[in-house]
Each structure stands twice: as structure tokens, then as C-alpha cells.
Design a protein around this nucleic acid. Structure first.
Lengths: 208, 208
DNA sequence: CAAGTTTAATTGCTCAACAATCTTGGGTTG
DNA sequence: CAACCCAAGATTGTTGAGCAATTAAACTTG
């Protein structure tokens, strides 16, 4: 199923933007694939939340609205904080968290904000991995695709991701010293703030 | 997409059992639907976890193995306990929990164990609803389908569901009196026990 | 200009066909 | 007799064309 992968790519690169209609016929031709095959890909993407299908009216690239954002952050707070609280002292995912933050710091040197966004997503993927659950990992990938859509609607990645690198480091150090409760509290504040910033960006979007 | 619904029904009624192969051609004919349409339904069911697709080798009704069970209960413990801990005092879902338990008690009078299983699933659906998150609710539906598959492999529903009605009542009362921490602790014990019973049933299955 | 009606576009589904891939049952060989 | 190889059969992956049903847009018409 590489048609689905191609469409994912076009969406994440901004070639297809939220709200764009994606008619079967045209897209099938442009992908060099038959309509039937494309429809199977649509089923996949629809379940991933990347596109929204309306019966008899086709599909559009999903538009994450404010309710989406609120819900995604509610889920993340519940799961990430609990994962951190119950984290084992030397869990391998902690190393991944550190690696993600260090990568982000390098990207900041070079001002590569898009790479920072990627590193941030990797950081929280590692947080989910603390829970040692394949199903939760899969859930995170779904949430992450929805977040990437939302981030894409807001042009200012620096504003969006800058405030969090130092906080990430603090969380890691609390975790490594075994203070999981404090790490979770820190993370909870982090997520509330991130949600607020994202929602604020949205607010301006709807006005403009 | 009613083909998918039909297949779901056949699986939940035991007409199709875990491990059964589901060849496209035969099933398409027996559903009076074309192969292409059926393949779209397969994509949906596959993402729901009801069938497993292997490239070029077709699909089988998913077989929940021990890792599946362990992971499902890990997820449930993390989410349900946290949902209970953070539950608001008079959350509407609490009423649903009570309704589910009362229905289960009536079913027990009549010895209708299959209905009790359904009521139990409804009880935990209500627990998930405490978190007020559409995405978590959707996650629960996925977990529930996997559990139904697992339950279906074990013939003794009384053994599986009997021990839990009184515990459910206790959890509700702790919740209503605002003792969310104790309710969560109770629920945690409940889930560990349920997992153990289910795994024990599996053990015997693999031997027999 | 509002309301109803035709027209065009798009989806949902079907059918038949063919290449690619997997399974199998021989048949051959060491 | 066991191990291996190969060809036949079955199943999936994909194509392309076609048609009814639904929806959106354009066009009358009162």
C-alpha cells in the first residue's frame, strides 16, 4: 500500500492542506494508480484520521478543529503523566527521550524549527514508550498525525516549539533521579501550556 | 459499508472463529458483494483488529494471543485507574456504571451469562467515559472487540465473569462517596485478577 | 429574485481480466 | 528414503471500463 504512503507524504509536506478536497479520479491518475486501489488507501487514511470521508460527497484532508486539539491533549495528559509516574528507573525509553532533546538542541543551533518539531514528537513518543504497550504506541502515532496537521495550520513553529526544550531536559533529570511524581507534575504543566499555545494560535487563525 | 457489519456479526456470533481463513472470493460471493467492495471492508476490519491480513496470503479472523491479552489489560489498567482517580463527583458516566451492574445482576438471576458479559463490557465502557474523551472511547471499543474475541475462545463464561459483579458495586460506591483513590485501587486489583483468570483459561486452551 | 428543474460531477459498486505471489504435490536426485 | 527442486493450482493485488445513485451547480421560469 504505497499509495497511502504517498498521500501521507503530500499532506505532511503541505502539498495537500487541511480542507482540500481529494477527488478519487484526479488523485488516482496523479498517483498512477487505479480508482479501486486508491479507495482502499482512502479507507486506511480515513481510519488514521488523515482524511475525512462523507458518504456520496467524497473525502477532504482532515481539518483538526479546537475540539480535536482539546481531546488530543486530554488523552496525552492522562497517558503520558501516568506513564511517567509509573516509569521504571532505567527504562530504555529514557535514553530515547534524552537523544530526542539533544537532537532538538542541535537543530536549534541551526535554527531548523521544522526539525525541532520532529524531535519534539520523538520525545513524546519515547514518553509513551515508558508504558511498554504496543497499543499505546500505536495510539500515539495517531495522535501525532493529528497534531502534525494542527501544527501545519500555524505558521510560526518557533513560537510553537521554542519554550519546551529546557522543560524536556528538566523532566528527564527528574526521571533519572527517580522522582517520577515530580516529573509527572512537570509534564502536566508542560502539556497544559502547549495546549494553550496551540489553541491561541488557532484563535488567531479563525479570526484572520 | 454494510459488508463489514455483516462480517462483524458473523464473528461475534461464532459463525467465524479466530483463525478461520476468510478468502476474498468465497466470502464476497456469500455476501453477495463484489471482491473490490469486500476488500475495502477488509481494510476497515483489519484496522479494527478483527481480522489479520498478511500480504499475498490473505486474511484470517484475528487470534488474540497471550501478548494481546497482557497488552490490553495494561492499557486498561493505565487508563481506567487514572480515569477513576480523576473522576468528577457526579459524572453522568457513574449512573451508566450503576445501570450496567444492575442489568448484570438481573441477568445473573436468569443465568444468562452471555448477557452478563455484555453488561460487564458496558460497565467498563462507562469507566472510560469518565475521562470525557472521544478518542479514549474509541480506543475502548477496539479493546472491547479484541476482548470479545478472547472471551469467545473460552467456553466458560460463568468462570470468567462471575467474580466481578460485587466488585463492580464496591467501586461504584467508593466513587459516589468521592473516594476516588480507593476506587482506583480496587479497580486495579479487579483488573489484575481478571487478567489472571483470562490468561489461566488460555493456558488450558493451549494444552487441550 | 425566489423556487423549482435540468445538467454535470462524483461517488459507490460491479464485473472481468491479468500479473505477482504463495502453496501444493509430484517427481527427481543423491 | 530423505531432501530438494519445479511446475501446476489457488489466492491475492491491481487494472480499467461501466452504470446507477447521490449531490452540487447551472439554468430556467413564474
Amino acid at each position: 500500500m504505497e499509495a497511502a504512503a504517498e498521500i501521507r507524504g503530500r499532506i505532511s509536506q503541505g502539498e495537500l492542506r487541511p480542507g482540500d478536497r481529494v477527488p478519487e479520479a484526479k488523485l488516482a491518475e496523479s498517483l498512477g494508480v487505479s480508482r479501486n486501489t486508491l479507495r482502499e488507501a482512502f479507507r486506511t487514511l480515513s481510519q488514521e484520521g488523515l482524511i475525512t470521508q462523507v458518504p456520496n460527497r467524497g473525502a477532504i484532508v482532515a481539518i483538526p478543529n479546537i475540539n480535536t486539539i482539546i481531546d488530543v491533549y486530554r488523552v496525552r495528559q492522562l497517558i503520558e503523566c501516568q506513564a511517567v509516574t509509573e516509569a521504571l528507573p532505567k527504562h530504555p525509553a529514557i535514553a530515547k527521550m534524552r537523544a530526542a532533546v539533544e537532537a532538538a538542541l542541535e537543530h536549534r543551533e541551526r535554527g531548523d524549527w521544522s526539525a525541532i518539531a520532529g524531535a519534539n514528537i520523538a520525545f513524546h513518543r519515547a514518553v509513551f514508550e515508558l508504558a511498554d504497550s504496543p497499543r499505546l504506541n500505536r495510539l500515539y502515532e495517531q495522535l501525532a498525525t493529528e497534531l502534525r496537521l494542527a501544527f501545519g495550520l500555524i505558521d510560526d513553529p518557533e513560537y510553537l516549539h521554542a519554550p519546551f526544550l529546557e522543560r524536556n531536559l528538566a523532566i528527564i533529570e527528574l526521571l533519572e533521579s527517580g522522582e517520577t511524581e515530580r516529573a509527572a507534575a512537570q509534564l502536566k504543566g508542560y502539556l497544559s501550556l502547549a495546549e494553550r499555545i496551540l489553541l491561541a494560535g488557532y484563535e488567531r487563525l479563525e479570526l484572520g
